[in-house]
Every structure is written in structure tokens, then in C-alpha cells.
Design a protein around this nucleic acid. Structure first.
Lengths: 148, 148
DNA sequence: CATGAAATAGTGAATATTCATATTTTTCTT
DNA sequence: AAGAAAAATATGAATATTCACTATTTCATG
């Protein structure tokens, strides 16, 4: 007999639901870690992107962090006010704005990336095992690519 | 050479990023379909849950639709105002509130579920194939379960 | 069975996001 | 090269979400 939070027939085999549920479940642990450092998930995503990229335009950051441009502009404003990121007009293309980490932001980003890796190990690798994790990544990459 | 929207070394193999990116990419198509019916994603999720369950308490709906309770209460209020759902106090447990679809909501839900299945076929099944889709679901289910 | 803890939902102010649009700079077209 | 179209970001009002708290009802346990 199914309890009251078991999904019914449709959702139970609907891929997008399974993806959302798996993601929410796995993410929850790390979200607590981020919250402990005073960061929301969108803020963490921006830090992670800039950790990887050193610098990115607002549009590139929006694509990488899966946020709508205007939302990102507002978010960057708040992060800048907190001293986590800097903004300056690009010299190459004066329409665009280069966002970078401040030294303080870089320290925070590095620290969180370290914790993210540790969390990933226990939440994914240790649960799926190495081979299944590789299979999982490969399937996700197929779905990330634009439809042929 | 990598373009400006390619993720760097960390994100490119960080499972939670791959999951978010895959999900965003696959979902985008269906979100347009939902928007065409005047529905946001959270609204669609509520309809889908109720399509499966006939009736659910606010707390159960929040868990199934991956939303914080207070957010769901506000959302349900708006959906009720639009005539998509009804609310009534449970007779069994008078703390809780049973949410159900109105006839109009049920029609909309059934229509969207139909479209969601069609979208899933082209966006997932046709791209991964039957066997890989089964493998994918099985991995997602493992991650959905609470950690042992 | 009384009482304190837990569960359930609602409320409203503070905060964040969205949506449409403005502004500036670059690119394209002819 | 002029002017139209596109790209990049910002802005602000409308809308939605969060957070902390309240009010009920149920549960657990001495």
C-alpha cells in the first residue's frame, strides 16, 4: 500500500518528474551547506560558474547558471553589494559587462567547490558506484545537448 | 576551442550541474506548451499531482510538487481563484485541507498530461532509446530514495 | 485525562523574480 | 556609410516567493 507522498501512475514514470525529484533529494544536503555560508542556490551557481571561468559576461553567466538575464542582473547587483563579485564594461565589446569574483568571493567559491565535491562523493559516487555514475553522466550529457 | 557558454573544469563534471542542465534543456520544450495554456511550471506540477491522486493535502502536495508549504498555500489560492482547484477541510483530520481539481481543472490537467507524454516521447525516449531510458529511470530512482 | 509537543495550514511583511521596455553598442544590408 | 536589425544589459512596476509567526487540531505520555 502506498503512503500519501508516493506519486501516482503518471508521475511515477514521468522522466521529468523523476529528474526533478532525484535532483531535489540529492541537492537538499548541499543546499544546507550553502545556506550555512549565507548563500542561496542561485548565488552558489554564480560563484561556481565564476570559479570555473574567472570572468564571464552577464549573458554567458545567465546561460551557465540557468537563469533568465534580468534575474541575473538583479542577483549580481545584490552580490556586488555584498562584495562577492565585481562588474566592469568589457573593453572588447562595450555592450557587455564582465563579471568577476572579488578576492573575498574567490575564497568563498573555492571553499564551496571543495564542499560540493565532498558532498557529491557521498551523495552520488558512493551511492551509485563508479561505473553507474559514468553511465549516468553520459546519459545526462546526451540530454543536455541540443536536439539533433 | 571552447565557446563562451561551455562550462569549465568543475561544473563540466559536477553531477548536480549536469542534472540541472539536462533538466532545463529537456524541460524547456514542455514549459512552452504549459505557458501556451496559461500555466506556470509550479501550476502544472500541482495539476499533475492532482491528476494522479484525485485529492491531496497541502503538505502532501508540497512534497510531491517539490515546493515549500507556504509557497504552495499561496499558489493554491491563486489557482482556486482561477477555478482550477477546490479546497475543503478534511473530515478525518481537521487540521488538514484537501485540495482537488475542479471539473475545469481536471480537463486542463488531462490535456496537459497527454501533451507531457507526447513531449516526453520525443525529448527522451526517441533520443535515448528504450533500454537507456530504463537505465536512466533506474538510476534516478536510486537517487530519489532517501540515503540508506 | 491533562498538558506539552508535533502536525497542519494560513498570514503578511520583506525579499526576490518576472515581464515589458529602454538604452547603448555592434552588426548587417544595400 | 546610413539606417535598420540585433545583441547586451539595465530598469522598474507587477507579481511571486520566502520567512517568521499564528492559530488550530491531534498526538504522546506521565
Amino acid at each position: 500500500m502506498s503512503d500519501d507522498t508516493t506519486p501516482g501512475g503518471f508521475l511515477n514514470s514521468y522522466t521529468l518528474f523523476l529528474m526533478a525529484m532525484a535532483s531535489a533529494n540529492v541537492s537538499a544536503g548541499f543546499h544546507r551547506i550553502a545556506a550555512d555560508q549565507g548563500l542561496s542556490v542561485p548565488e552558489w551557481r554564480v560563484l561556481a560558474c565564476l570559479y570555473d571561468r574567472r570572468s564571464a559576461s552577464v549573458t554567458d553567466l545567465a546561460r551557465l547558471s540557468l537563469m533568465e538575464q534580468s534575474r541575473l542582473t538583479h542577483l549580481i547587483g545584490r552580490m556586488q553589494a555584498r562584495g562577492l563579485v565585481d562588474r566592469r564594461r568589457s573593453t572588447k565589446n562595450r555592450r557587455s559587462v564582465e563579471v568577476t569574483l572579488t578576492p573575498e568571493g574567490a575564497v568563498l567559491a573555492a571553499d564551496l567547490v571543495r564542499q560540493a565535491k565532498a558532498h557529491e562523493k557521498t551523495a552520488i559516487l558512493d551511492r551509485l558506484g563508479g561505473e553507474d555514475t559514468r553511465v549516468f553522466h553520459s546519459l545526462l550529457r546526451k540530454l543536455m545537448a541540443e536536439p539533433a
